[in-house]
Design a protein around this nucleic acid. Structure first.
Lengths: 255, 255
DNA sequence: TTTTCATTGTGTTGATATGACACAATGTAA
DNA sequence: TTACATTGTGTCATATCAACACAATGAAAA
């Protein structure tokens, strides 16, 4: 977004968006055996932030989040989940906000809509890394994937939001299937295992994992194997979307 | 709260509270082997609502929820958990709001703060039934405990909020200890079991439940037994608060 | 062509947890 | 003293889980 558009956004925001309410998205992707998160680099600064946005006057939180995510990733079918409201009165520090605006070349008056206190609803999204086209927004000049744990200190309380999202994701792993949104349509068992290991932060036994995942009956073995890899060609799988959705709703067997 | 105070509240609300943001609390209690929820009866109406409130300009969501809960129950140490943001643009129907205000004897102009769209953050609270003193608020003339499942149709989307809270509570039961906030300080094993059965909505085996709960090591058997009951006097327990808090944070054993 | 070797696929076994069940102990009330 | 509802605890069969070993595959190296 050009400078002019940014100015326009700031000028009209109070007409279009709800006041003191924002949303921040933790977009998880998976690539090269690493869990990644999509971040934005603030203009003329080396600090990074979570992609976020505001809520239009007559829009639901979910709709707003989908809109933001679509703008940042180009995707329009995204697994989205709200996980926490961050409402600490001290969370949006005006000094820091002002500094970022100044660097972005924008000045806003003291009582401006943007200078209000903001409460933020945290969403996390699971996306297929390979289909994302990262797009910076009006406040940023770069949008890129970062390894979880190598993000450094994000702006405001975004590090805390990221941490909380990861915590919730780990919990969900125990009673919900995962992977459909993070992996390409066809994938191998070792790839799925690596995903689980990365999210949980620990190694899993290959044979036990295989047995356990198959017992959920959410996978369909394909008639093909992955080609062009060194060593034995692994079996390709895809998710059985019907059973996957059912497991999402009803949980995985026991617990 | 008297009529004058209500008028004053409506007049000053926009100065004191954030706009288009509210919170609603699902307060669970346990009594007579039944899971109860605290509800308010709208003035001059037979419809009931969840206790709710608004967020002061410089207050966190949690602080606001604690304030509301304290006003409704008299308690100041409450187990509180936010669980969802309800943001459907159609959720706060102005026709219904107007009707309730009219019945409460209040008229507000069309563009008034109160007539805005509201997004609501849902909290659930677990409280010791016996220590609560239900107090109606400015919009209600009664505050009382209702059996879950006998509440009928609540105002606005409050039935949906209640249902969602129950859903989340059931999920939490699988990886968090529960009971400390719902039971009196001393309780028996059958009482704890009845609580679990009520929340889960199904019978549990007495002997297996006993074994399982004890394996969590969050209970301390007391040197007394419940007196004055027919039949064999049951052993009294209390929660080991240190281990209980630890289990709250770290989850129950495996999963 | 053969060998090497990292990787994939699968079976077994012992330990542990779970669910189904039965019986003895207790204390009030008949 | 007896009846009886309720509490407390033990056992056993079964399911689940963690730990482990070996054969199959196929590209790369020799």
């Amino acid at each position: 977004m050009a400078q002019k558009e940014l100015k326009e956004f700031i000028d009209n925001a109070s007409q279009i968006y709800l006041s003191h309410l924002s949303l921040d998205c933790v977009v998880f992707g998976f690539h090269d055996g690493q869990l990644k998160v999509l971040l934005l680099k603030m203009k003329n600064s080396d600090r990074w932030s979570l992609p976020g946005g505001f809520i239009k006057q007559a829009e639901s939180m979910e709709t707003a989040a989908i809109r933001v995510l679509n703008e940042r990733t180009g995707l329009d079918s995204i697994f989205l989940q709200q996980f926490h409201v961050f409402s600490d009165p001290g969370r949006s520090d005006n000094k820091e906000k002002n500094a970022h605006l100044r660097r972005a070349g924008i000045a806003v008056p003291a009582g401006h809509w943007f200078m209000q206190r903001f409460l933020s609803v945290g969403f996390y999204a699971l996306v297929d890394f390979s289909t994302v086209t990262p797009q910076p927004d009006a406040f940023s000049d770069d949008c890129a994937w970062w390894d979880i744990g190598e993000t450094g200190q994000l702006i405001l309380d975004h590090s805390r939001i990221l941490f909380k999202a990861l915590e919730v994701l780990r919990l969900q792993l125990h009673y919900q299937p995962i992977g459909y949104n993070l992996l390409p349509p066809k994938f191998t068992m070792p790839e799925l295992q690596k995903l689980y290991e990365t999210i949980l932060g620990r190694k899993l036994d290959r044979r036990n994992f295989h047995r356990k995942i198959l017992s959920y009956e959410i996978l369909r073995p394909l008639k093909e194997k992955r080609q062009g890899v060194a060593h034995k060609a692994p079996q390709l799988y895809s998710f059985d979307t019907i059973k996957y959705q059912k497991a999402l709703k009803e949980g995985l067997g026991g617990i």
